[in-house]
Nucleic acid binder design. Structure first.
Lengths: 215, 215
DNA sequence: GACATAAACTGAATTCGTCTCAGTTTGCTT
DNA sequence: AAGCAAACTGAGACGAATTCAGTTTATGTC
């Protein structure tokens, strides 16, 4: 579940791809993408600037790759977490919790993702960038679809009392990912605390019958 | 309430500042900030590229100004909407509604704001940019503070059943502003519909006693 | 009606970061 | 030890934002 795995199918052992991605996550996450010079990352990794182009077509291509990896992990976490849930209410709690399983670097990666979602809206000029962009878009759709399915199931079971499953899913997602705007490792709240509070909030948002009983 | 008012105290009648801002909102909002060439805006407005520097120190300075104006309007809308609310539940509904009073261009402006929040995190090199950045930051704080006050009032009155007012305020804000990521004028939902649905969702999120009674 | 003045503006040149080009080096395979 | 692809490099091209060194335009003043 580390940030830079499942990269390419056949990854040469002397490839610095993973190191570049990790470094880029740290820099982009802490200083911002625009503010980070591509050359700085080359220096950090210990290679010449042009060597970066052996791995990525452009700085944006690297960014999109980071976003795609995060989205991909997110899909996997969701599925792993909700697969064994006995009912919809438990599935919702598990889904929310899965969103906060994060190392400090994962937190940065999720912040990067949130901060650059707008990149996915318009086509990219170059081949590989566009490829990653489209992958990102379909992963976003998959995530929305998965959450929508979860909500719909809860509605059908009579546990969630909301009308529009897709809209509710989007609300839940906004609620959940909004955290990455302000969360900082070592800040006022730990991820464990956040998990609990957000799971409750999510349950209230879908007007889950279980919450009413509990309160 | 137009997008480019309350600009400077003494605004010369032949100033193109307001036109530049409107044009920039349209371009930045539709094509994205990075993707929009500064020169394009000059062309749209009908002036040479260098004339822009008479009004803004840089492209980013213009962006930050747009964000600051939006934040400022947001504060005003919140206060106007909640001032006359008879109780906390009504105030929450009014606050949510105030967030969706928006012309198509306002919608773009709010999307721009959301997409570039990360700019506010790190200091800016130039004087005026940094000035706008700090203004934005304090406006963001003011908005969080206002929402927190609203939630706290509801808690004190026993109407909202949540623990942490600040955290709840942040959740509400995430919920409310998340809409600008997917809303499009002429899309599936109108702003009126969104207003209703989001007001309900917000009420559930704070576990408002009124919602329980109503359902 | 000429004159001062500040805002509004301009074309040419500069800067700076991203990216391309034309190769060279490295390490693995056969 | 030759062949080969991955990994890498320095020198420069490119493009968009920005600076420079002024010129034009409107407005109020004498």
């Amino acid at each position: 579940m580390s940030t830079a795995d499942n990269a390419q199918r056949t990854e040469s052992p002397r490839s610095k791809r993973a190191v570049i991605i990790s470094t880029a996550i740290d820099r982009f996450g802490e200083e911002g993408f625009e503010h980070t010079k591509w050359a700085t990352i080359a220096d950090d990794v210990g290679i010449g600037q042009t060597a970066l182009y052996h791995y990525f077509e452009s700085k944006v291509h690297c960014l999109l790759t980071i976003m795609r990896l995060e989205l991909s992990n997110s899909v996997e976490r969701f599925q792993a977490a909700t697969a064994s849930a006995p009912d919809s209410a438990a599935a919702l709690t598990a889904a929310v919790a899965s969103a906060y399983e994060a190392s400090p670097r994962d937190a940065l990666q999720r912040r990067i993702l949130q901060n650059h979602m707008d990149l996915l809206a318009t086509p990219r000029p170059s081949k590989k960038e566009e490829e990653e962009r489209l992958l990102c878009r379909s992963l976003v759709q998959e995530i929305e679809h998965n959450w929508t399915g979860l909500v719909q199931k809860g509605i059908d079971e009579g546990v969630f009392r909301v009308d529009d499953a897709l809209l509710t899913a989007r609300m839940l997602l906004a609620l959940v990912v909004g955290v990455w705007r302000w969360y900082r490792p070592g800040g006022e709240m730990t991820l464990e605390q956040i998990t609990d509070v957000m799971a409750d909030a999510a349950a209230r948002l879908v007007d889950s019958a279980d919450v009413r009983v509990a309160s």
